[in-house]
Design a protein around this nucleic acid. Structure first.
Length: 273
DNA sequence: ATGCCGTGGAAACCACGA
């Protein structure tokens, strides 16, 4: 009943902040999808990954016209992350994950938005494993764990969100036995995710939906979406001050079914003010 | 089980994604 009231009368929605993460798989290639989703879902804050655009080719005007201020860290061809906010330009804190000045991938951006400290991340895929790409993934994960410990101890509201390229548990993959050797599911990677969450972070989706099969990614081929052969790899981690404010979390699953969609679907949470 | 699809950039194929 409370849900009915809150969702039915728009005025009540203003008491909540809706924050989303979306791996767009090409911010220009999938711009129409992004704009359609922004219009329909109207999140207050959005973290984007896989812009696949250099700094100067981010579609700033279209994003502005949709009602969002943005900061972004682009890169030619690959990676690229952004934070969008309705309320004003996010106050940027960092655009690199500390710990390796040699790492030039655009996979991390951090900002203050509406009093919340938000880290938007795109963790390396890591395939094939084993190999140099998998090593890079594990090193990147180590740096994230180190930095997350610092953020966690700050006591201010903190969100770590984005595409983690991690399947945390059997429940998060349509057929676990097919993924045992994959860089998204290997024991080292799941252990790293556990080490991170053991700092005290709350996995928002699992907090509110502990037993539900929920996916955020479906492969483009083999009719993966039609068969619901998906993975849950896009996550929201919240620190203790925000855990108490978490009122809803979900996946805009239908977006993945739109013509010319990204292979990921947007994930969102709602926080009480 | 598999890059069978899709993006971006360079070159009319290749790297990369998960």
């Amino acid at each position: 009943m409370l849900d009915f009231i809150l969702l039915t009368f728009p005025i009540y929605r203003t008491f909540f902040m809706k924050i989303a993460t979306y791996n767009v798989n090409g911010v220009n290639g999938h711009l129409p999808i992004l704009l359609r989703w922004l219009d329909q879902s109207a999140p207050d804050v959005v973290c984007l990954q896989e812009l696949k655009a250099p700094q100067e080719k981010f579609p700033e005007k279209a994003i502005q016209d949709a009602g969002y201020h943005a900061i972004w860290h682009g890169q030619k061809s690959w990676n690229g992350v952004a934070i969008l906010a309705r309320s004003g330009t996010p106050r940027e804190i960092s655009r690199a994950l500390p710990g390796d000045p040699e790492d030039l991938h655009s996979r991390y951006i951090e900002a203050m938005v509406n009093g919340v400290h938000i880290a938007c991340l795109y963790l390396p895929n890591g395939n094939p494993a084993p190999g140099p790409k998998f090593d890079y993934k594990l090193r990147w994960f180590d740096r994230l764990i180190t930095h997350a410990a610092t953020l966690y101890s700050s006591k201010e509201p903190v969100i770590l969100t984005g595409d983690y390229n991690v399947i945390p548990a059997d429940l998060d993959v349509y057929k676990p036995e097919n993924w045992t050797d994959d860089a998204l599911f290997r024991p080292e990677v799941r252990a790293a995710f556990k080490k991170l969450t053991d700092q005290g972070w709350t996995d928002a989706i699992r907090q509110l939906h502990p037993d539900e099969k929920i996916y955020t990614f479906w492969d483009y081929f083999r009719n993966a979406y039609g068969r619901n052969a998906g993975l849950r790899i896009d996550h929201f981690l919240l620190n203790t001050p925000l855990k108490k404010r978490l009122v809803a979390a979900g996946v805009d699953r239908d977006v993945r079914g739109w013509e010319k969609s990204s292979d990921h679907a947007p994930v969102w949470i709602e926080l009480a003010d």
